[in-house]
Design a protein around this nucleic acid. Structure first.
Lengths: 251, 251
DNA sequence: CTTTCTCTTTATGTATACAGGCTGAGCAGT
DNA sequence: ACTGCTCAGCCTGTATACATAAAGAGAAAG
């Protein structure tokens, strides 16, 4: 988020390489399965081998690359099923976070922060039926999810969720833009926002099991969005990292 | 497992450094919070800076180290709560795996493999009431959990579980040895084994929700073991990575 | 006696040279 | 024409030199 504001000059070579390389992978410039040669990246990114190497290791950790047994890395390919499971994993972990938050109880101020965030989302959704500012929604949605994870107050869980969300198509608001051309857009956002409200209420009332169930179901909205994109080819460009998904022939 | 058989000579310098460094951290030679200097490790491990650096990055990914903002890494410290949550995360993910396996359905041969493994565990447990070979139990237990994860047939999930189990005290059979001196040993193993049987039955019958619940509860046996070790100081040496856990004063 | 500033020491980040192994192309033999 | 082998090119793993930034010690000033 705020890291974007940092000037490119101030970034370390490693971070620079990591960002550039991730972009290359996500945009599909590097094809899935293809080997990523260090030297080629050296001349393409303009940094030396050491930072490139570092970036490769970190991108493997992120799940965008995979290690080749004989050495080096290749661009990872994902089956449709793997994408669905990745979303399910994220939802499950967020569900756990919501349950922990509910069971431990959370501070008044955290609840107020969350509620305020939801009010802002309401404002974005209801402003006018048409022309919803999706980028604003995406940002607020991400913020709400972040608040929720903070409520769990468990660094290991936060870390694990972060890892699960590192896959470009698995993060909380990655697939929201898929609906941008859909007539159901307003409908789906309304449902999602209701889940937001419900989970917050559940946490407030210490209803752990309910909070967990809601967050799981909430993540499945992403399933639907993905399903939509897989059916309507033209919506696939709205899916981040779609270049990595190996399409199956669909009836 | 089988990697242990590989001669040290054949291992890459990076892997060698990684193993040695992990050992140093786990045995508490390096204290939590302490900075891990590359150069010191170079002379202690007998490899050059590059592999040491690589090992540091990988151990950070494992969760044993954490990056220092100004550069470098330090040994991570875990609160008791964080350890409990780490176990809960592992259990939750294994629960998801069990549910997926149940819902997708599993091949006959996988079910037979699992059943055979459980028979072997029975054999170990029932052999004689006293003197159970715990190391054998630990290995078979790990094998069963592995089979279960394979049943889910989801590389992303397997990967995530692997990550969650990377923390030394969070893995499936890490805390089993804590009971070695306990009179309840046989009792607890019996209960755990029953859960193994039940989850397998649930998967076979496609009872996804039940399979999930059982695996979650199964992981909570580790909670109990940890609680025991935290109460009885003398059992703490049986907890892997206990050096990393910052004890709270207990009433 | 405490505090602050400076200087020295040492840490990491980066670049690059070197060695060993893998891959693939081309050639020879069947 | 096909198959197997050899060799060359390239790629990664490793070591190390250099630059820059941080941390700590020591001295001087308040």
């Amino acid at each position: 988020m705020s890291i974007e504001k940092t000037s490119v000059r101030s970034l370390s070579q490693t971070v620079k390489a990591q960002l550039a390389l991730r972009e290359l992978v996500l945009r599909g410039v590097l094809n899935p399965g293809e080997r990523v040669s260090e030297l080629q990246m050296v001349e393409r990114l303009g940094v030396s081998r050491t930072p490139v190497r570092m970036a490769l290791v970190r991108l493997e950790e992120e799940g965008l690359l995979e290690a080749i047994p004989s050495g080096g890395f290749s661009v990872k390919a994902f089956s449709e099923k793997e994408v669905f499971v990745s979303i399910e994993i994220r939802g499950t972990l967020e569900g756990l976070a919501a349950r922990l938050a509910a069971e431990h109880g959370v501070s008044r101020s955290a609840l107020l922060d969350a509620a305020e965030c939801l009010d802002e989302i309401d404002h974005v959704i209801r402003r006018e039926m048409l022309e919803i500012d999706l980028s604003q929604y995406v940002e607020l949605n991400a913020r709400f999810h972040r608040i929720l994870i903070d409520m769990a107050d468990s660094p290991p869980l936060a870390r694990q969720i972060e890892r699960a969300s590192a896959l470009p198509f698995a993060s909380a608001s990655a697939l929201v833009p898929v609906q941008s051309r859909s007539p159901e857009l307003h409908h789906i956002l309304t449902v999602a926002q209701d889940q937001h409200r419900c989970v917050l209420t559940a946490i407030e009332r210490r209803e752990g099991s309910r909070a967990e169930a809601i967050m799981r179901e909430h993540a499945r909205i992403a399933h639907r969005n993905l399903e939509r994109a897989l059916t309507n080819q033209r919506d696939m460009d709205l899916v981040p990292g779609s270049a990595l998904i190996k399409r199956r022939i669909r009836a």
